[in-house]
Simulated assay, not measured.
Amino acid sequence: MQTVSQLGMTPVKSGQLLSPREVRVDRRGIVGDRRFVIVDDGDAQLGRPGKGLFVGVRFDHDDAHATLRVRTPGGDDVSGDATAHGDPFPVDHLGIRTLRCREVGGPWDAALSAHAGRPVRLVRIDDGGNGVDVLPITLLGTGSVRRLERETGAAVDPRRFRAGVLVEAEEHAEDGWDGRLVQVGEVRLRVRSGVPRCVVTSFDPVTGVRDLNVLKSLAAYRPTAGLPDGLMPGFAAMTLSVYAQVETAGRIRVGDEVTVLDEP
């Protein structure tokens, strides 16, 4: 039986991936996931040179009380009000879409800028939106991670792949779910294409230290694919895990059964 082994989300895009025991999912994905983004002094998200900078930074967001806590590997630990204010402004999201964001109060910009080595600030995506890259949910099988460990000759923490749902499943079982409906706890998902991987997989998901060339190992045995729906034409990379759209909202808990459904 295939089951949910681990869940993953982060309140701030590119921040340390958290592993809650239960999440609520709506049509936009895991509720509370990637509600904030980090931008530079030109209102742009950090590009390729900034990938991985905040992987080791832990963000804990309490939406009910509008507070945020930020802990950096360097020892900074700051908390404060995370209420958005002011008029919304546009932030380009990977050239795929434009996010409407608003400024956030709070004391963490100094700590984040010191960690990044450049001026940055935290902004909140407006109107309940989020900063997921392409589709709301990604699914990754534990068997696929074990295969990668054999290829790299090293232990691989699955959180490197920042998947929303880690499934206890056979090697690359998720590759065969393309186009299928998958029931995960109360949630029903429509699986789409594979997820092209980027350099963020090279960073330890806890410390943020770049320590493993995952892309080189993937290149030895994994296919390449682009983004679904014609996004970013000409872009392709090695895949691991799969994208999914949310067909039915609900809750997912660690230990829930994962069932590939026949078409209705």
Rank of each mutant, 00 (worst) to 15 (best):
residue 2 Q to W: 15
residue 3 T to M: 12
residue 3 T to Y: 13
residue 6 Q to K: 13
residue 12 V to C: 06
residue 13 K to H: 07
residue 15 G to I: 00
residue 20 P to C: 07
residue 21 R to G: 15
residue 23 V to N: 06
residue 31 V to Q: 10
residue 32 G to D: 10
residue 33 D to P: 01
residue 38 I to Q: 05
residue 51 K to W: 13
residue 57 V to W: 06
residue 59 F to K: 00
residue 64 A to I: 06
residue 65 H to W: 03
residue 66 A to V: 10
residue 68 L to D: 03
residue 74 G to W: 10
residue 75 G to E: 09
residue 77 D to C: 09
residue 80 G to T: 12
residue 86 G to V: 05
residue 86 G to K: 04
residue 92 D to F: 10
residue 95 G to F: 06
residue 95 G to V: 03
residue 98 T to I: 15
residue 98 T to R: 14
residue 99 L to D: 01
residue 102 R to D: 08
residue 104 V to Q: 08
residue 108 W to M: 07
residue 109 D to F: 12
residue 112 L to V: 10
residue 118 R to H: 09
residue 121 R to K: 11
residue 122 L to P: 03
residue 128 G to Y: 08
residue 128 G to S: 12
residue 129 G to D: 10
residue 134 V to Q: 00
residue 138 T to K: 00
residue 140 L to T: 03
residue 147 R to S: 15
residue 148 L to D: 02
residue 149 E to A: 13
residue 154 A to V: 07
residue 154 A to K: 13
residue 156 V to Y: 03
residue 157 D to E: 12
residue 161 F to V: 01
residue 161 F to K: 02
residue 163 A to V: 04
residue 164 G to W: 02
residue 179 G to W: 05
residue 181 L to V: 05
residue 184 V to E: 02
residue 185 G to K: 02
residue 188 R to I: 15
residue 192 R to T: 09
residue 194 G to S: 02
residue 201 T to L: 04
residue 204 D to G: 06
residue 206 V to N: 09
residue 207 T to Y: 00
residue 207 T to G: 13
residue 208 G to A: 09
residue 211 D to S: 14
residue 213 N to K: 12
residue 213 N to L: 10
residue 215 L to M: 14
residue 216 K to Y: 08
residue 216 K to C: 05
residue 222 R to Q: 11
residue 223 P to Y: 08
residue 223 P to G: 07
residue 224 T to H: 08
residue 227 L to W: 00
residue 228 P to A: 02
residue 232 M to L: 15
residue 232 M to P: 00
residue 232 M to W: 09
residue 234 G to V: 06
residue 237 A to N: 14
residue 242 V to Q: 02
residue 243 Y to H: 11
residue 245 Q to A: 13
residue 246 V to W: 04
residue 253 R to G: 12
residue 254 V to R: 05
residue 257 E to L: 15
residue 262 D to Q: 11
residue 263 E to W: 11
residue 263 E to I: 06
residue 263 E to V: 12
